[in-house]
């Protein structure tokens, strides 16, 4: 999981390679944004593989509990809702950043990070509850593939939170307001992507009966 962290950090930090705002690229598009979208395209194959593994194994519960026996739909619905709303606060942060409004950017970024942390906290709670109901990582193919898939997603959210907190710190150091707008936008893209992955996970894993 640490690997994911390193990889994401490098790609997102890559955006910092524009020391000097104004770029004249062949397509007129920012290198950083193009790089980020390429990376997100690649991430589709990563999560696709994890989701497929879960799909293949969701019914193979062995002696352990079945999905329907452990899933707590009201609880997960609430945390899904929290993550969805963090996308709204993220987009508001990006919007403020483009207006050069560092104060509001900071505010919305912080709220986004808090919502993200709530989601991850919920996931930790959920994992603990499942574990107490007898569903360990190695209990069954279902449990292993479930923990790997949602765990990977959780790591992504956590990486996102770290980036959000870091950008708050970096913005405090920067002298010109709005100079980190593109970085905020970049983190925003990453954040929304993590959200859309959860949209799929919530539906396919939690709502569709195995």
């Amino acid at each position: 999981m640490w690997f994911t962290l390193a990889e994401h950090a490098v790609i997102t930090a890559g955006e910092h390679d524009t020391g000097h705002g104004d770029h004249h690229t062949s397509t007129g598009l920012s290198n950083n944004k193009l790089g980020m979208w390429l990376f997100l395209g690649s991430e589709c194959l990563l999560f696709g593989g994890l989701i497929s593994t879960y799909m293949l194994y969701r019914g193979r519960v062995g002696e352990g509990p079945r999905p329907s026996q452990v899933f707590d739909i009201p609880f997960t619905s609430v945390s899904s809702f929290v993550l969805l709303m963090s996308s709204l606060t993220m987009v508001l942060a990006v919007s403020a950043a483009h207006k050069g409004d560092d104060r509001n950017t900071n505010l919305w970024v912080t709220i986004t990070a808090l919502l993200g942390a709530t989601f991850v906290g919920g996931q930790v709670y959920e994992f603990t509850a499942f574990y107490n109901e007898g569903m360990g990582f190695t209990t069954s193919l279902f449990s292993s593939s479930f923990y790997v898939l949602t765990g990977f997603h959780g790591v992504h959210v956590t990486v996102g939170i770290i980036m959000l907190m870091s950008i708050v710190g970096i913005m405090k150091r920067s002298k010109t307001p709005g100079s980190k707008a593109e970085t905020v936008e970049m983190i925003g893209l990453y954040w929304h992507f993590v959200d859309v992955v959860w949209i799929i996970i919530f539906t396919l894993i939690y709502l569709v009966p195995a």
Partner: peptide, 17 residues
């Protein structure tokens, strides 16, 4: 990881530079 970061980098390079 090296290949993936390289891919992002070189595609961006070819399209943008």
């Amino acid at each position: 990881i090296a290949s993936l970061t390289g891919a992002v980098n070189l595609i961006t390079t070819v399209l943008n530079m």
